[in-house]
């Protein structure tokens, strides 16, 4: 069984971003970049399926500028077998990304597609579901457990209120939640080996996908600053403030 894992290059989760001076976006120049944490969990899960003998090949794919190949190499250092890079400098909405991934999937014909549930920059939480719709596949979002049993998927999902277990036929799309696994650290020999793994590059035109313009970002602004409050000396003082000043209890 082939597993396809789409990944995204994002600003590292530990970096605090700032809105740029002309309010057109977030200043990302010179910031540390990384593979999106949820994508990393997706790669780890695919690699574990391969190690368990369930998956035969793990293919990682990304859409982005030339430097996004760094994240494909990271994924290959974690154990993915080869990479596919759809090169573009354009900022694309999730629907356009999903269309490009769907074009890759129609060539690769993977039985399972695992991707992160959201990227920590756009916070959209859309791409996996859209890819499933375009490919007419069932989906299991927010997965905290993935099993392949008798040719179908058994998934536990994190939903509002608790956990849900479902089964679905293959091919299918799964999106990874935080607690699906804890990704490994890439070992140095594997990082070296990843540099020699195959990586194909395509342009959007190569894939024959026509993309539309869907949205215009008019401005990006910092959120209203919350004024820091006061430090109190005792629980009694806190209760007094909550009762008489804030009047919330």
């Amino acid at each position: 069984m082939k597993v396809l894992v789409p990944v995204k290059r994002v600003v590292d989760a530990n970096v605090k971003v700032r809105v740029n001076a002309d309010n057109t976006g977030v200043d990302t120049a010179n910031l540390k970049m990384a593979i999106n944490p949820f994508c990393e969990i997706a790669v780890e899960e695919a690699v574990r399926l391969k190690e368990a003998g369930v998956a035969s090949e793990v293919v990682v794919v990304t859409v982005g500028p030339k430097v996004a190949q760094e994240q494909l190499r990271t994924a290959m250092a974690l154990g993915a077998d080869r990479g596919v890079h759809i090169e573009t400098d354009e900022e694309l909405v999730p629907l356009s990304i999903a269309k490009l991934l769907n074009a890759v999937q129609s060539k690769e014909e993977a039985q399972l597609i695992i991707l992160g549930k959201q990227s920590i920059d756009g916070d959209n939480n859309q791409t996996g579901q859209m890819l499933a719709a375009l490919g007419k596949m069932p989906q299991a979002t927010f997965a905290s457990e993935v099993k392949v049993e008798e040719g179908q998927l058994a998934i536990t999902r994190e939903i509002d209120g608790g956990l849900q277990s479902i089964t679905l036929p293959l091919p299918a799309v799964v999106t990874a939640d935080l607690r699906l696994n804890e990704p490994r650290y890439a070992k140095l020999p594997n990082i070296m080996k990843a540099k020699r793994k195959p990586l194909e590059t395509f342009s959007i035109d190569d894939l024959g996908v026509n993309l539309k313009s869907h949205q215009k970002v008019l401005k990006v602004t910092p959120p209203a600053e919350r004024k820091g409050g006061v430090m109190l000396a005792s629980v009694a003082e806190l209760v007094e403030k909550l009762k008489n000043e804030a009047k919330v209890i």
Binding site: R18, D121, N124, T221, P223
Partner: peptide
Amino acid sequence: VAQLSEVVEVVSPDTFVRPIYAGSALATVQ
């Protein structure tokens, strides 16, 4: 069509505000 996620404010029938980067910024999107 594209989707707008987690809209927090309506500016006009085609323009909305939504948080990005864990709420570190607010994008006004048409």
